[in-house]
């Protein structure tokens, strides 16, 4: 008999679009954890591991982004969706808010705007300000996309995983994984938004106890971005996972380890600490 975890689905309307979310896990002394996925992601796509495993520990809430009306996606559109879900489920707060990749930028902005309601913040593979290196990659992506080239998903896959992870598999395995990626108009808008991120000023105002997680072999959002977040946010501590950008797949269990420890005891490490890697 499989352990089918009970969960509840909810939805809120934000600027005229329906935003769906999922709630699971027991209420206990841990602060509810809200999960925000990244570009081209979803609850199952980016939190397929973290969501069910954390729900054995505590209350977990995760949302799927909905495409807002209009030609251009702004960070504020996604922030509004996250705020609406938090307000619907934990109106008084506090919550622990976790974002991955673009979701980390959304989460950081949300924390800046919601103040004390966001007690704790986890930013995995996020960034402060889009830089030349990212713009260059994004530009190649855009050209491949404009050519309607099948290699656009292979390029994304190539950029997402570390060499060590890839080398445990065959080229065919990696191409098959690339084939699962679907580029929708909404994903294109997210990719465009990725070129215009600047949350530097907002990060200076974040009061939440923050865990920043950088990925050693990240080619999409190299770890110097996480170091910048670690510097910009006052009450931040930093951990690093030897993974590519796709840490939610590559090192899901190690990511879980950091999330689990931080949500259990956010002040285990003081502000400014670089958390040593566990050496098995």
């Amino acid at each position: 008999m499989l352990d089918n975890q009970p969960f509840r689905e909810g939805h809120v309307t934000v600027n005229g679009v329906d935003v769906r979310y999922r709630v699971a896990g027991p209420e206990n002394d841990r602060t509810p954890l809200v999960l925000v996925h990244g570009t081209a992601g979803s609850i199952d796509g980016h939190y397929g591991y973290i969501f069910p495993m954390m729900a054995y520990r505590q209350r977990v809430i995760a949302l799927d982004w909905s495409e807002p009306a209009g030609d251009t996606l702004e960070l504020a559109d996604l922030v509004a969706q996250v705020k609406a879900v938090i307000t619907a489920e934990v109106p008084e707060g506090p919550v622990t808010l976790m974002g991955y990749s673009l979701g980390a930028c959304v989460a950081a902005m949300t924390a800046a705007e919601m103040g004390g309601k966001i007690a704790n913040l986890i930013l995995a593979a996020g960034w402060l300000r889009t830089d030349t290196h990212q713009k260059m990659r994004n530009d190649v992506w855009r050209q491949l996309r404009d050519q309607d080239s099948a290699s656009v998903t292979q390029y994304m896959t190539f950029c997402a995983f570390s060499p060590a992870f890839m080398n445990m598999r065959t080229v065919e395995d990696m191409k098959a994984a690339a084939g699962m990626l679907k580029i929708t108009p909404f994903v294109e808008k997210q990719m465009d938004l990725n070129t215009r991120i600047d949350i530097a000023a907002a990060c200076e105002t974040i009061a939440a106890k923050t865990l920043v997680i950088g990925c050693t072999y990240d080619m999409m959002v190299p770890k110097h971005h996480s170091k910048q977040l670690f510097g910009a946010i006052e009450d931040a501590r930093y951990a690093e996972i030897p993974s590519g950008h796709a840490v939610v797949h590559e090192r899901a269990a190690e990511l879980f380890h950091y999330v689990d420890r931080f949500t259990r005891q956010p002040d285990e490490f003081p502000a400014g600490a670089i958390i040593p890697a566990q050496k098995p």
Partner: peptide, 8 residues
Amino acid sequence: AQRRNIPR
């Protein structure tokens, strides 16, 4: 996660 018996 397999031993935890999560269907996926």
